[in-house]
Amino acid sequence: MRVKNYYYASSLEDAFSRLHESNKNAIIAGGLWMKKTAQEYDTLIDLSKLGLDKIEDKKDEVVVGAMVTLREFEHSPVIQSLNSGMTAFAVREVMGLQFRNMATIGGSIFGRYPFSDVIAGLIVLDVALHFYPEAKMSLVDYLSYKGKYDGILTHISIKKDNAKGYFKKVKATALDFPLLNISISKRNNKLYIALGSRPMTAALCLKAMDYLDKNPVDDEAINKASEIACEELMFSDSTNISKEYRIDLAKVYIRRGLKEVL
């Protein structure tokens, strides 16, 4: 990565205006994955001084600033009490403590990384992304948004649904990228299933969810749902795991996860 200028934005308006001065300008959050790219930037715009590092516990939702670090997120009592602790658990699976003291919620989501444990942990919840200039989009819609989004992610809101959740990161070693992510939640009497790192970005298994919605959820239905989920999403080989093994793992963990949240 090469950078010509580093700039601390004084306001969101300032950041947005700087961002659009050049197509080689970019917002920097934790900056951890930028290091691994060969990209050249004219100006990196830092949002650290804009107060986007707070977690607010509101009546119906939790609002998390984009610059909240993963460590602050996982340690927040509000987040730990949310959705049977599943969200905090998913974030705790990311690398080591030092890494999570630097990486931010905003950076983890905005990049739409295929290996993101954060996205996989959040996608089965009712999560909205808030941008500057003022715009709101569900996490699911953002993940399927074509092209790079023009606005600046300022915070996310997680609806308090009293959900019960399950999250599993399959990895070879403690600090490894996920070979597969499985997340499941039950909220408002509906089951949500998502698979990430297949190795594509996490996505909901809509057909499997629909099947569970329309059928009594017994062992047979759980088995069937795990089959449907693996048929509706695309899987591929990676250097350290085959497509077939990924699918086998997904079926097993979907069954376990569904039984856990029921």
């Binding site: 950078v3 580093y6 920097i28 900056g31 951890l32 830092d46 030092q98 890494f99």
Partner: peptide, 17 residues
Amino acid sequence: LDDKPVLSCSILSAKAE
């Protein structure tokens, strides 16, 4: 960095301002 362990190989110096 402000009492929190971070990876100095991966944090830009500018962030330590």
